[in-house]
Design a protein around this nucleic acid. Structure first.
Lengths: 345, 345
DNA sequence: ATCACCTCGGAAAGCGCTTACCCACATAAT
DNA sequence: ATTATGTGGGTAAGCGCTTTCCGAGGTGAT
């Protein structure tokens, strides 16, 4: 064994160090450690590997990326990572990335389109293999700037995959908001509800709009009537405020309140509770997404389960699989009628 | 205006392109665009900036990193990003990173020490400015391998900050688990509870152990008695199972169940509900963390609020501030006595 | 006029890697 | 024996940036 200090000098261990330690050239060390099409004789390979282990070498990814011109990285853009909706998606993306040996970098838009553009621009600097846009965007289509950034990203060899339809992204995995909401609407009408109040996000937010549209379709087709659509944001507080506001204006007993996302519905439940209205037989509430806490509410929240983690996973696959097909049938959803919308006789 | 196609050719726009477009040298372009100590005459600077805008230039961060030898990146290691506990922390980290102009890369350990080491090793390749370890680890101290990886990371100029004490990390931001749990224990005893059942995570999990210890101290000091400590994991299902198991063995009316985290407590609540025990006056339940859904439970969950986002933010600051001081007083906590633990007379 | 001194653009040497390309050597075919 | 054909290590030319160093030109002091 060569006598060389295994203790790293200040600074990281470089491939050069490993090569010297192993007594081979840089090229050989590179080929031995970081996959290459060229073969390296076993004796050499082992020697290099041993040297690397001894030194605790870990390839400098940045250098690798510059040299290779591509960067084992995917970027994920979400509105708010503390929101369970995005948390679940992120988990799915992370799992997929892990399997694919990719590193994921995350940025949060706070639902601000300006920030979004800035972030894409910043992330673009990473020359990521793919950019996954999960930040729910407005339907205004993508802004001029966003499109430009995305185009550049693509030009640099990155893929853009959008969660949800629309956008100029060639690849996208979509949650069947319309269909799922329609199914929910139908189910509720069949439970005997005739009047619905919808708590939505801002007009123009695709996800929200789709859910409103689907719900309306399903509910009215089955004989229900939409009383009103109130708009706010995708937050608990918005749900709370909107519901409070509605209560002030008067809400008939037997109405079902549909919160366009569970978080909103939960806010509504809180407002109802504070107003001392009983949830269920007095005023019913339903949500969308089936975030974990939905079932722990009392009464348990009726909602529609979307396999959020799978959505994230699918997005990653869409981003990395070379022969990806858009026609993959939409992810399955499941209407979960729970106690917050008891059958109405 | 020079006549040059603003349309990017295939491949990303490089600094070289910008320099040519602006008619200046590479050096000048670099100095003008990406902060440098050297000054560039306004006329030049503007010309370069204009060219960059025209071309949609975005610096290749990998190349910058190799050239500069340091990488505007922080790595975050969490156990599970879908868990609201980590979600909140991640949000805080992301906010801080954003302010500091850093990009955050995230990896999830799934609470597997082996994965953890592998991930640190992989992330190390990024030569991150800092690594934030939020994955709750066992008290066995860090494993041999982990320490080695962390040492390498440090040698490469990165900082390691650990959430929670222990570990060889020189910097750490700690949640006052012991103090907070003690306060909760005291508060519950003062509510009139005399018998407590604790639902914890595995023995050896620092966070869990600290909370158990603190709670025990506070509760017994105020006259309560610990009936039993059941161990499982940090999950809802574990809380559910443990509680079910305890019920099977018999739980006295008037006992308070302390779930070492809200998630566990929520699982316990579900189990109690399924067993048709009333929560509160029959069996009381308390948790820890104050995750958002805690207050939406019925009855609302007694817990102790830890400013998780701030913890994440603080971790990032600890990671980036050059003159960081460990003695910063621990983050404030707040005991929230809610309806799941009504006063007992 | 002369000179010391400062300012600021450009040339070129890296940063840590990858990857043509070259070539010594071994083996197989004639 | 001679020549075609691999095999596999090494040399060196990049990858897209930063930064040191040089030198041309400008300024103020003498």
């Amino acid at each position: 064994m060569t006598a060389s200090s295994p203790t790293p000098r200040s600074g990281a261990v470089t491939l050069h160090d490993v090569a010297r330690e192993a007594g081979v050239s840089l090229a050989t060390a590179s080929r031995a450690l970081n996959g290459s099409s060229r073969k390296v004789a076993d004796s050499y390979r082992d020697r290099v590997q041993a040297a690397a282990d001894r030194l605790g070498y870990s390839a400098n990814l940045s250098a690798q990326a510059t040299a290779r011109g591509t960067s084992a990285t995917v970027a994920l853009l979400v509105a708010d990572i503390a929101d369970p909706y995005f948390g679940e998606i992120a988990a799915g993306v992370a799992r997929g990335a892990d399997e694919a040996g990719l590193i994921v970098t995350i940025a949060i838009t706070e639902r601000d389109p300006v920030r979004e553009v800035a972030l894409v621009r910043a992330l673009r600097g990473q020359r990521p293999q793919a950019l996954i846009l999960a930040a729910s965007r407005t339907s205004a289509g993508d802004s001029e700037e966003l499109s430009a950034e995305l185009a550049q990203l693509t030009a640099a060899g990155g893929r853009v995959v959008a969660l949800g339809p629309g956008s100029s992204a060639p690849r996208s995995v979509t949650i069947d908001n319309v269909g799922a909401a329609r199914a929910l609407g139908g189910a509720l009408a069949r439970q005997g509800y005739r009047r619905a109040l919808v708590l939505a996000a801002d007009d123009g937010t695709v996800t929200s709009d789709q859910r409103v549209a689907g719900f309306t379709g399903g509910f009215t087709a089955a004989g229900g009537e939409l009383v009103q659509v109130l708009r706010g944001g995708f937050s608990r507080s918005s749900g709370y405020d909107l519901m409070t506001q509605a209560l002030a204006a008067g809400v008939e007993v037997g109405t079902v309140v549909f919160g366009v996302s569970d978080i909103i519905a939960i806010g509504a439940v809180a407002a109802l509770r504070d107003a001392e209205r009983r949830i269920g037989d007095d005023i019913a509430v339903a949500g969308f997404d089936d975030i974990p806490s939905a079932r722990d509410l009392t009464p348990a929240l009726t909602t529609v389960r979307v396999p959020l983690q799978d959505v994230g996973y699918a997005a990653l696959r869409a981003a990395t699989d070379d022969d990806w097909e858009p026609s993959t049938e939409p992810l399955p959803f499941e209407v979960l009628v729970r106690d917050s919308t008891p059958p109405r006789t």
